[in-house]
């Protein structure tokens, strides 16, 4: 039951942060959701096998595929988080004007 519960609390916390105002909370919310999905992926491989998957591992060896998925996902989340942080920087410098005032094709 531990895996689902970890997913649950991470999702709840992440969603709560997403729905609050503020850039930084948005970023952190997505970081938490990213963690939640990683735990979910790991659980999808089966949490009853907990030996590192190396060559010649025993019957307890974990499924290596979800781990590869998680690694990929972590790195993508990292990249996007870094990009979101840029928004944080921009958002701070100038607030967003409502889109209606915008006018204009490419310069």
């Amino acid at each position: 039951m531990s895996g689902p519960l970890i997913v649950g609390v991470l999702v709840a916390a992440g969603v709560f942060l997403l729905l609050r105002p503020g850039q930084l909370r948005l970023v952190l919310g997505f970081v938490l959701l990213g963690h939640a999905v990683n735990v979910l992926l790991l659980a999808a491989g089966g949490l009853h096998r907990r030996e590192p998957p190396v060559d010649g591992g025993g019957p307890e060896s974990a499924d290596p595929l979800p781990q590869a998925f998680i690694l990929t996902a972590i790195v993508i989340t990292f990249g996007i988080t870094v990009y979101l942080l840029r928004l944080l920087r921009r958002g701070a410098r100038r607030g967003s004007r409502p889109p209606e005032t915008w006018d204009g094709g490419p310069r």
Binding site: S96, W102, D103
Partner: peptide
């Protein structure tokens, strides 16, 4: 143009 920051935020947040 102007307003892209707000729109970009909505866009990134939803697609993320």
């Amino acid at each position: 143009g102007p307003g892209r920051a707000g729109a970009g935020r909505v866009y990134i947040a939803t697609s993320l």
